[in-house]
Design a protein around this nucleic acid. Structure first.
Length: 471
RNA sequence: GGCGACGUAGCCAAGUGGUAAGGCACGGGUCUGCAAAACCCUGAUCGCGGGUUCGAUUCCCGCCGUCGCCUCCA
């Protein structure tokens, strides 16, 4: 069937067809590095990771670019206040972003370009726009003239009338003089001494949107296959990117636009400005959630185009789902198969695998895909209970688990969570318990189990003896 | 005011024109020295009102509710 994705521009699910056969080129909007990204931001990044992983499965070659926005008003303001260069200001936040990315097991993009490294390319695009009469100067800044680009508004479905009405009360917030409220800055002039670049356009700094056009076109070409971001990037960011990119090249900038819905908390959108956000760092450090559970919730708590409510309850449900998945993996890993068994397990696997792939191909429906997986997990557990799984099928089950988790991505996180070595005291208590059980001292055995539980070590007894893992 | 999305069991959440996956929680069992894990049993006519249809939760219209975007936003 092949991968189909919902395209924001055409508002329909479309077959993913690449410009270059077998090679998909994707650009995902990355963070503005002025603080920790919050888990709402990471909902989008995790969605993009699931997409990336499925693209890796479905295409011969994937080139994935995620930008780092390292220049904007907030960054400049902080740098000035802290007496930092732009670079010094931004460095710790870039490190923090990569750290959080790794905590959540997000597969790295192939390129992480920084806006400030593409000033020349931005100037080139502005030059091309200028040749086509799509720019004007005001206040020494350079603006894009939206009125000269008839296709403006197609992505977001917003038209002049709606914008001019300006009911958000924010339209006039801009401090610059523009001919039309829809116009946006390509290049903003700055005063001498302020952070900026000396260019033929004068001393200034880039507008918000031009960076993505420059980096996307430089690294992936003028016509790319997929461009992703959060829904709040549809307008104005992506709308403006289209205008300035297509205005410069005259050809289609992006073939398929993909947007992830918001993460909510207490029913409201999680946002820095609302102050209702949490960071990966906080959640993991405080022990509020394991990285594996957080990843599961963000990736599979709901279809990516539906908003997802973040709560302790949701986190708990995700934790339990992960544990069920891990327990199955561990059980399969340790199972001693029957030499001969009926072929039921094989059929269950094939059906589950087909359903999984079908759901993923259908607009990345991970919740549905996992429904099929857990359905199979139950049936396979039944068969394992009855020792009705043969050696060869056991191998198939293991590769099925690998294939599913190649997308879900929680098992490596769980393994990392568990690999913290036992300290001496824990090891001693575990040994004591083995001894107590050997002499059928159940009271001591239970007491030691409780003691270990308080230290975060969960002990289970199996026919193969005592097993432990971190809770 | 304009544009758009959503409303499915106690909670979360898929899905389909022909009477509804999965996860979590609760209760009852099997297994276990006791637990854990696993398995079994138990629960919904899909916001409300109309319409189209042999038949709608699924299509159309209206209403109610929730949320998002309308130039800081993933």
């Amino acid at each position: 069937m092949g991968l189909h994705l919902f395209d924001t521009m055409s508002r329909q699910v479309r077959d993913v067809k690449t410009v270059e056969p077998g090679h998909v080129r994707i650009y995902t909007c990355g963070p503005t590095v002025y603080a920790f990204s919050h888990i709402g931001n990471f909902r989008t990044f995790v969605f993009e990771d699931v997409l990336r992983r499925w693209l890796d499965r479905r295409f011969d070659r994937v080139t994935h670019v995620m930008n780092l926005t390292d220049v904007d008003d907030k960054i400049i303001c902080n740098a000035t206040a802290n007496g930092h260069s732009l670079d010094e200001e931004v460095k710790p936040w870039i490190d923090a972003f990569f750290n959080d990315r790794d905590i959540l097991g997000i597969r790295p993009a192939h390129h992480y370009p920084r806006a400030t490294e593409y000033i020349a390319q931005m100037l080139d695009i502005i030059g091309r726009l200028d040749e086509r009469g799509l720019t004007y100067r005001a206040d020494s800044s350079v603006y894009f003239r939206v009125g000269a680009f008839p296709k403006y508004g197609r992505l977001s479905g917003l038209h002049t009338e709606g914008l001019a009405a300006g009911a958000s009360g924010r339209v006039d917030a801009d401090e610059y003089d523009k001919d039309d409220v829809r116009d946006f800055a390509l290049w903003k002039s700055v005063a001498p001494g302020e952070i900026g670049w000396d260019t033929p356009l004068g001393r200034g700094r880039p507008g918000w949107h031009i960076e993505c056009s420059a980096m996307s076109m430089s690294l992936l070409g003028e016509n790319i296959d997929i461009h992703c971001g959060g829904v709040d990037n549809i307008f104005p960011h992506h709308e403006n990117e289209i205008a300035q990119s297509e205005g410069a090249t005259g050809s289609t900038f992006v073939r398929l636009w993909c947007h992830a819905a918001h993460l909510r908390i207490g029913g409201e959108k999680m946002a820095k400005s609302l102050g209702n956000f949490s960071t990966v760092h906080d959640i993991v450090q405080s022990g509020q959630a394991r990285p594996s559970a957080l990843r599961y919730l963000l990736a599979a708590g709901a279809h990516y185009r539906k908003s997802l409510n973040y709560s302790d309850d949701a986190l708990h449900m995700a934790t339990e789902a992960v544990d069920r998945w891990v327990a199955f993996r561990d059980r399969v890993a340790e199972h001693h198969p029957a030499v001969i068994a009926p072929p039921d397990a094989k059929r269950v696997l094939e059906r589950a695998d087909a359903a999984f792939q079908r759901a993923m191909d259908d607009d990345l429906n991970l919740p549905e895909a996992l429904g099929a997986v857990f359905q199979a997990v139950r049936t396979l557990n039944q068969l394992l209970d009855g020792n009705l799984v043969s050696d060869s099928v056991l191998g198939d089950i293991r590769s099925f688990i690998r294939d599913v988790d190649d997308v879900l991505g929680v098992l490596p996180l769980v393994d990392k969570e568990r690999e913290t070595p036992l300290d001496v005291e824990d090891a001693r208590l575990l040994d004591e318990r083995i001894a107590a059980r050997a002499s059928c001292d159940w009271a001591a055995s239970d007491q030691l189990r409780n003691q270990l539980a308080k230290r975060g070590i969960v002990v289970d007894d199996t026919p193969q003896g005592q097993r432990w893992h971190r809770g």
